[in-house]
Design a protein around this nucleic acid. Structure first.
Length: 241
DNA sequence: TAGGCCATCTGGTCCT
DNA sequence: AGGACCAGATGGCCTA
């Protein structure tokens, strides 16, 4: 009997852990209900995302899109990298050195974006890590197509991405909390690029089409303090640049 | 079929 | 003593 009770507690505990992880999935880039990131990839992407945003805050400058995506993808598996690239409507081959024809990407060298990287002393992921020999590239380098997101149009030439993903899944959980012009983390900087709608929040529905209010969340209290200060700072940074 | 991912069970350890 | 936390083992499911 004690063992059964302990098992039930452990089950509940793990469910709580999974719920928290699902919450994390919703706030990192590329949230999709149909193509869920694995637990480990969710944690890695979250770590990269935090680091990339911190870097933006620290530097006070808006990063170019390629640097940002590279930071996000550092240490991620190839499928997850494809997913992130697909979310941002980029061709992963344009920032994966082993797949690029760019002479700058050949002959080794390390990507100068000193991201979170691998924890010293810990084994490398089995799938390797991104190793860039070039610095940031202008946006036109990575993407020369129409800049408006249209999930129905081919965003890149044949790179496998199934099912099609929308960047709009990103930040979807903030939709109910953020007013127009107050987009989290200043990403309205990329509005014309990433969001087809004119309103910065119009595109926040993920491609699998659930609205945040459909989720079974208890109404959350808005926390104004550090979160909003952060947003304000980042908004200012993106607007200035 | 192998490998990745996951949920669950289980026993050990630590904390209250 | 009981609960929380952790890591190892196991089996199921899915995909390449």
């Amino acid at each position: 009997m004690r063992r059964m009770k302990a098992n039930a507690r452990e089950r509940n505990r793990m469910h709580g852990l999974n719920d928290a992880l699902e919450g994390l999935r919703r706030v990192v880039p590329c949230y999709s209900k149909t193509q869920k990131l694995s637990k480990i990839e969710t944690l890695r992407l979250a770590k990269n995302y935090i680091w990339a945003l911190s870097e933006v805050l620290h530097s006070g400058k808006a990063p170019d899109l390629l640097s940002f995506v590279q930071a996000l993808c550092k240490g991620l598996s190839q499928p997850t990298t494809n997913l992130v690239a697909g979310c941002l409507q980029l061709n992963p081959r344009t920032f994966l050195p082993e797949q690029s024809s760019d002479p700058h990407l050949q002959g080794g060298g390390s990507y100068s974006f000193q991201g979170p990287g691998l924890t010293p002393g810990l084994p490398s992921p089995p799938y390797g890590h991104l190793d860039f020999s070039h610095g940031a590239k202008p946006l036109s380098y990575v993407y020369d197509g129409p800049l408006l997101t249209d999930c129905s149009s081919p965003a890149f030439d044949g790179a496998p991405l199934s099912p099609p993903l929308s960047v709009n899944g990103n930040f979807s959980s903030f939709k109910q909390e953020v007013a127009a012009g107050d987009f989290p983390f200043g990403l309205q900087h990329y509005g014309p690029l990433l969001y087809a709608p004119t309103h910065p929040l119009d595109g926040l529905m993920g491609f699998d089409g659930h609205a945040p209010h459909e989720r079974n969340h208890a109404p959350r209290e808005r926390s104004h303090a550090p979160h909003e200060r952060c947003m304000t700072t980042l908004n200012a940074i993106f607007h200035e640049s």
